[in-house]
C-alpha cells in the first residue's frame, strides 16, 4: 500500500517538478488547494497511474475522494487493482 503513495510522491517531485521538500507531501495534504496539482497535473498523474499500474481511471473517478490527497489516491488505486484482479480471476474454472 505505502508504495503507491510513495510512487505518487516521486511522480510529483520528478515529473511535475514540485519544488518543495518531499517531507511536505504528507498523506493528508490537500493536493489541489496547496497548488501541488492543477487540472493538467491531475490528468498527467492519472495517465501515469494508468500506464504504470494498468488500471483504468474513468471520468467519474476523478473526484477529490479518490484523488484529493495521497491517502485517497493510495486507497483508490488499491481498490482499482483489486477490482482488476477479481475480473482477471474467473469464478469457475
Amino acid at each position: 500500500m505505502r508504495d503507491i503513495a510513495d510512487q505518487v510522491r516521486t511522480f510529483i517531485v520528478e515529473d511535475l517538478g514540485w519544488e518543495g521538500p518531499r517531507a511536505e507531501l504528507t498523506d493528508d495534504l490537500p493536493l489541489i488547494e496547496k497548488g501541488v496539482l492543477d487540472s493538467l497535473g491531475l490528468l498527467s498523474l492519472v495517465t501515469h497511474l494508468e500506464d504504470r499500474l494498468g488500471i483504468r481511471v474513468e471520468d467519474r473517478d476523478m473526484v477529490p475522494d479518490n484523488l484529493g490527497t495521497l491517502r485517497n489516491i493510495d486507497r483508490f488505486v488499491a481498490q482499482k487493482l483489486e477490482a482488476a484482479r477479481d475480473r482477471n480471476t474467473p469464478a469457475t474454472r
Partner: peptide, 10 residues
C-alpha cells in the same frame, strides 16, 4: 473554488 477547477465532476 480550486477543487472545482481541478475536478470536472465537482
Amino acid at each position: 473554488p480550486p477543487q472545482a477547477a481541478a475536478f470536472p465532476a465537482v
